[in-house]
Each structure stands twice: as structure tokens, then as C-alpha cells.
Design a protein around this nucleic acid. Structure first.
Lengths: 131, 131
DNA sequence: TATAGTAGGTACCTAGAGGAAAGTGACTAT
DNA sequence: ATAGTCACTTTCCTCTAGGTACCTACTATA
């Protein structure tokens, strides 16, 4: 990550953050694989590593581990380790993570309303005369 | 996609899309550089290429062109070419793009409320005992 | 004895996104 | 004659996220 994210020079509308105030949130919430993980944990409740892996399926265990650690560090999920044999680890969404639910619902709503418009725009663009 | 088998096992939520219904929207709206561009166009109105480049600053002209083309194809922005000398091109947000504004506002609100919680969670995680 | 199951860790490697820098075309101003 | 402007385009290069494959400890079960 960019380690100098909190430098706030007043006149510097140079970096992408001052050009876009939601850039930090986008980094945290909408980086690669985080939305499927958060969505799955929110939809199906507390789950073990292999359950997540099975539900998302195209993610590799290495990357799943990375993303889970990152989400845990950001406080969006909670990891519970049970020192049994074989080991058992459970992941669940945190309160902070659950506070994203209305946002996700909003996004799903926009998707339902406008995704076909994007598709149509693409078709128009692709069939238009390439001047 | 996987369209070969007729066996529909109920647990076949394999691809990341079925695991996360908002994945397509995230791809369209929150891919790299798209949020700063959309935010800038929404905040400052119709702008020329160099204005966008100056406001976002860390983006290179090559990537800015790529992202603008992509957003135009998706119908989120409108490009207007004026065949003058020197050439003049103006970009503005489309109606479809403007429909994202409440979503962005929602995101900004979440950011204002919870970004410091993420920061605190990170500090806690980093200072915790690494068992 | 061998195998399966769990939750990862580690080493190596590749593809592709993105950055740097220079070029382009048509015209104008000096 | 030369330089400058705009909106890119092109070429080359780097860097890293992510993929593949294999490894760990431990026990129950066959």
C-alpha cells in the first residue's frame, strides 16, 4: 500500500485522493476479491476457510488468505481460531463490515436498474461508425 | 462461462459473479482510475483533456485516454470532439453517470463515519501480539 | 501403513497493467 | 524557419498482483 496516505497538504490537489475523496474507501472495500468475500460472509454468516473457498471457487488459497488477513486488519471481518485437531478457523463479518450492507444494497439496486443500460451503451459504441 | 453441463447442482455458485451479484458493477464503476475521473467530472462539470490531467495529476495521458474511452463505451461519460485547430475535446458526465452520484455520496458518508475506525483497527492489529 | 482432512505457508514464475518518453498532424504565432 | 498547442498514440520497459505447485503438523480412520 501507499504508506504516505495521510499526508494532507492543503493546496496540493495533485494526488488522486484530493481529486477524489472516496478513493481511500474504494481501496479498502472494492479492491480485488474483497467484495465477493464480504458479500459471502454477509449472506451466509460465519464460515470456515474451505467453505469460503468453495463458494468463491476461482480464488486460490494463497490469495484468499491474503485478502482475509487484510480484511481482518481493516476490522471488517473477525477471525476465530480454534486450536483443535484438525485446526478449525471461522470467519465472520464484523459490526463495521456489516455497516457496509446498505451500501452494497444500494449498489445492487443501481445494478438492477442500470446494468442493462451499460450493456446497451457498449453495443451502440461497438457498432457505431469508427470515424 | 461454464455452459457445458446440464447437471445443476444447487451448490454450483462457482464463479465470482454468482458468489457476489455486485461484481459486475464493481468492475465497471470501481476499477482503477474510474472513480477519480467520474468524481472530477461530476464535481467540476464539462472539462477538456488537459484539465482532467491536471486535476488528477498522477495519471499518465495514455492511461487517462484508456479510461476515458472505457467510460465512454460504458455510457457513463460523453465525449465531444470539436474539429478545430488546435483540436478541442470535451468530456462530461452522462445521465447514466450522474445516476451514480447518490451512491458516491453514500460512500463518502460511510467514509466520513467509519474511515477512522478502519485506521484504529489497523493500529490495533499491528500492535497486537502475533501469536 | 497409508491416506484424508484442515488451514494455511513458501518458493517460483508469468501475464498484464501501468509508467516514461517520444512522436504525430494540422495549424498558428513569432 | 521555428516553436508551440492539443489530444492523443506508440514503443518500450518495469513491477507486482496473482497463479501453480508443493510443503507443514497432527490425528482419526481404514
Amino acid at each position: 500500500m501507499t504508506a504516505e496516505t495521510t499526508t494532507r497538504s492543503p493546496a496540493a490537489s495533485a494526488d488522486p485522493e484530493s481529486a477524489c475523496p472516496i478513493a481511500p474507501v474504494v481501496d479498502i472495500v472494492f479492491s480485488r476479491w474483497t467484495t465477493p468475500i464480504l458479500w459471502t460472509l454477509n449472506a451466509h454468516g460465519r464460515q470456515r476457510f474451505v467453505e469460503l473457498q468453495r463458494r468463491i471457487a476461482t480464488i486460490t488459497p494463497k490469495v484468499l488468505t491474503q485478502r482475509l488477513r487484510q480484511l481482518e486488519r481493516d476490522g471488517l471481518i473477525v477471525r476465530t481460531y480454534h486450536p483443535e485437531v484438525p485446526p478449525r478457523v471461522e470467519y465472520e463479518i464484523s459490526e463495521l463490515g456489516r455497516s457496509l450492507a446498505p451500501l452494497f444494497a444500494h449498489l445492487a439496486e443501481w445494478s438492477a436498474t442500470n446494468l442493462d443500460k451499460v450493456d446497451r451503451a457498449r453495443q451502440e459504441y461497438d457498432t457505431a461508425s469508427p470515424i
